Simulated scan of single mutants.
Amino acid sequence: MPERSKYSCTLTGASFLFFELKQVVLLKEQGLQDSEIREKVRTENLFGYKVKSSIKRSLPSVLRRINALDDTLRRIVVEKSLETGKIINLYAIMKTDRLFFEFMNEVIRDKFERGDYHLERKDVNVFMTAKSEQSETVAAWTEKTLDKLKQAYIKVLVDSGVARDRKTGALNRILMDEELKRHLVGIGDKAYVKAMGEWFE
């Protein structure tokens, strides 16, 4: 279960942010503290944003994700392939966003287990409607916020490689690096691996 137990809609302003995550991982590996990272990212515009104020919106989410990763996972982001780094970013999003974890676990995992490789708009709508009925927090969000959140979920799926195409909704089964898989299972996060659609014997 994600460490942040409350439902959140922060993905509407954060989305995948893999480039940003990698920049911050490199700073963490140099031993910088969060406060030093914030200062360096802002003063040097390390994210390369045209509008610097965008950093205020994305950096808190990036730092939350980074702080959900242990030393091994941060090392793998730096050393392994782009695809593996993206899978770790997807894991970090699930670790810090309870609602998105539940979406992956209840919708995407279920589809992979049934051999259904197609995500329809109605699948996302049904999920959000069910959560609105179960949670006062989600029920209080406006239709506009929910629409943005649905779009953000699809974007994360596409950017991580879980979805092939935003329009068709075609899903891909990811190929997880064996070292990464063993490590996640070893630290007790098998549920997150399964939520990404990985097979287990």
Rank of each mutant, 00 (worst) to 15 (best):
L82C: 00
D34K: 11
V78L: 14
K50C: 03
V78A: 08
A163K: 09
Q134F: 10
M94G: 01
V185N: 10
E120I: 13
F112A: 02
A152G: 04
F200C: 05
T137P: 06
I187F: 11
H118A: 06
S135Q: 07
A92H: 02
D159S: 08
D116L: 11
G31P: 01
L27S: 02
Y7R: 11
E3T: 15
W141F: 04
G31E: 09
D189P: 01
K131G: 09
S53H: 10
K86E: 03
M1R: 13
D71G: 05
W141H: 00
F103K: 00
E44N: 08
V162T: 09
N172P: 00
S54I: 06
R98P: 00
S5R: 14
S135D: 04
G48N: 01
D165W: 03
F18D: 04
D97K: 00
M176N: 11
A140T: 10
Y153F: 14
A14E: 12
A195D: 07
R42N: 07
S35I: 15
R57E: 15
Q134L: 14
V158I: 05
G48P: 02
D159K: 11
A191F: 07
L27V: 01
L184V: 06
V25L: 03
I37E: 00
E179S: 15
S35L: 12
E3A: 12
D159A: 15
E36S: 09
G48W: 01
V77W: 02
I87G: 02
T12Q: 08
R109H: 08
E102V: 07
F103L: 06
S15V: 13
S35D: 14
T84P: 01
F200V: 13
M1W: 04
F19E: 13
T96F: 04
E20Y: 09
F200K: 11
K95W: 02
S35P: 00
S135V: 07
T84I: 06
V193G: 05
Y153E: 09
I87N: 08
Q33P: 00
E3W: 14
R74T: 10
G31K: 03
S61P: 07
G48I: 02
L11D: 04
T168C: 00
S135Y: 13
E178C: 08
M196G: 01
R4G: 13
L69D: 04
R166L: 11
G31D: 06
F18M: 05
L180H: 13
L11H: 03
S15F: 05
G169D: 11
Q151H: 09
K86G: 10
L26T: 11
R64Q: 13
K22S: 12
N45V: 04
E83N: 09
R121V: 12
F101S: 01
K52N: 07
W141I: 00
K150V: 05
R64S: 14
